[in-house]
Simulated assay, not measured.
Amino acid sequence: MDFRIRESRKPQGRRTLVREREEYCADARSRLNTAYMTCAYLGGSTGSWLGIRVWGQAGW
């Protein structure tokens, strides 16, 4: 435990900063993918709902 505390207080070098940036980019990609999939799901379900309503009204 004490070793980890001392390690976290070390000055950050280039490798550490690059690794943090890669982790941040992975987190950002994950959030963007979640937003995309949520919108795709909501768009598909809304389109299905509207299609059922239009078919019920107009009969196509």
Results as ranks from 00 to 15, higher is better:
30 S>C: 06
25 C>W: 11
58 A>R: 08
56 G>W: 01
30 S>H: 09
11 P>M: 04
52 I>S: 06
19 R>P: 00
36 Y>I: 13
32 L>G: 02
13 G>Y: 02
54 V>W: 00
48 S>E: 07
7 E>P: 00
59 G>M: 04
44 G>R: 05
9 R>E: 15
19 R>S: 14
1 M>Y: 07
43 G>N: 11
18 V>P: 00
21 R>W: 05
60 W>C: 03
58 A>Q: 10
57 Q>D: 11
3 F>Y: 04
18 V>F: 02
37 M>E: 12
59 G>Q: 08
46 T>Q: 05
45 S>R: 06
51 G>P: 00
10 K>C: 06
15 R>T: 14
56 G>E: 08
34 T>M: 07
60 W>H: 04
60 W>N: 07
31 R>N: 04
60 W>T: 06
38 T>N: 04
42 L>D: 06
15 R>F: 12
23 E>P: 00
18 V>H: 01
44 G>C: 05
46 T>P: 00
3 F>S: 09
7 E>N: 14
4 R>G: 11
50 L>E: 03
19 R>Y: 04
34 T>Y: 07
46 T>R: 05
16 T>K: 12
26 A>E: 13
35 A>K: 09
33 N>S: 13
59 G>N: 03
21 R>I: 05
56 G>C: 01
24 Y>N: 04
39 C>P: 00
20 E>A: 10
45 S>N: 06
57 Q>P: 00
42 L>G: 00
28 A>F: 12
49 W>D: 06
10 K>V: 12
4 R>E: 13
37 M>P: 00
56 G>Q: 08
58 A>M: 08
4 R>K: 13
3 F>T: 12
26 A>D: 10
